[in-house]
Amino acid sequence: MSVERKMVTACIIDDDDIFIYGFKKFVEIRGVSAEILNFSNGKEAIDYLKNPFYANNLPDIIFVDINMPVMDGWEFTQNFEEIKSHMGKKISVYFISSSVDINDINRAKNNPAIEDYIMKPISETHVEDLINSYQISPGFISMN
């Protein structure tokens, strides 16, 4: 049985350079077939998503940190909700943060725009599986 695979585009928004480096590196080391876009705050990501020039290279999945300068994770989610309908595809948003503040966690869990809250330090296998889950075409899943 041949599984129809495609290249996943994952976007990571975090002001922590080391985390971004690590993220890209583990994707590379594990041979996950994904292209990684990275931004150091929410505003950079929104500017990218809004830019028609990149309309053909939109991410499938966005991992966004909470605490960032200029535009934090919450503000990003709010801004993203406003432009979401203009996007040519469905994009899933995950929070990825080292905050253990129960208010942050509950707020994220109760926000329908956020798929899940992933706690740092991340489990590489969890994130790998998550990215891989976007590789399988929607058609294949429905046939299963």
């Binding site: 080391i18 985390f19 583990f26 080391i29 080292s98 740092k120 330090p121 991340i122």
Partner: peptide
């Protein structure tokens, strides 16, 4: 206290992340 713990936690998390990568990678320059 919250901020310090957050800050320390993110450093500690990164450290664990890097150590994992260090162990996983085969490439010397990595």
């Amino acid at each position: 206290a919250y901020i310090v713990s957050h800050n320390l936690r993110s450093h500690a998390g990164n450290l664990k992340f890097m150590v994992n990568l260090f162990e996983e990678t085969k490439a010397e320059n990595d």
